[in-house]
Design a protein around this nucleic acid. Sequence first.
DNA 1: CACGAGACCTGTTCGC
DNA 2: TGCGAACAGGTCTCGT
Length: 270
Amino acid sequence: MPELPEVETIRRMLQPELQGRKIVGVRVLWERTLATPSPAEVTTGLPGQRIVTLGRRGKYLLIELTQDVLLIHLRMSGDLVLEPQHREPGKHHRFWLDLDDDRRLVFSDARKFGRVWVSAVPAEILCKLGPEPFDTDLTAEVLYNKLKRTRRQLKPLLLDQTFLAGLGNIYCDEALHLARLHPQMPANRLTLEQSECLLRAIHQVLQEGIRRNGASIDWVYRGGEFQNYFRAYQRTGHPCPVCGTIIERLVVGQRGTHICPNCQQISLTG
DNA sequence: CACGAGACCTGTTCGC
DNA sequence: TGCGAACAGGTCTCGT
């Protein structure tokens, strides 16, 4: 589910609610949600710590505490919600923090793919991530040189979080459509000009996603409306907003992929 | 190194 | 209506 814009939206919405709150209790309802350390260590180690601030790195939400950092990856179906402590546990509740304002921060996750880490050294978990898309060090030239080093197909490469952190299936399809690049184009065939175009497209779709509070699709709804502005993603059979050609669905790297066969041609670009 | 298959999971939608 | 298949915003591991 959540990609960079959805995680950033959650961060911005929760930050004012959580900043300064003290953790008074912890509950682990599905043990595998907790990656490290053990439930026993977390339930004894977290209470008493205060939430200093919320951060984000790629698709990870970082809850910075007075001593540790809670790292949360929502994967496909995870969500974070605040609710009163007296409420009965929901069906998909996997983990929660009881706060000192009689509310709890719940990690809810139907598919159980999401993970939570608690660490004093978050870099150990985040060190493999590639650059943030909005990092000013990531210039078009830098991206061009990174692309030149591999013959991998563009889409699986952009989904590889060690190459670039934050893009998922939606925003990848959207960025490639905006940049008029075919998802199966070998990365090392991009020109500098195309790399510039791709970086601008990535920035644009992520920015618009954040501005619209992310995308809400399937049964996970958290108020975002970017789903109403998709150019290609999940628009199989509908006209391309640029040229009117019917959007096609293909599978690239085992992921459903949506393209305009007219705008996005490998041959167009050599 | 690059790619594909399979695993991890549950819920919804599609097709017969 | 019912039922199985396909599909879903992600990532890891393993085999070729």
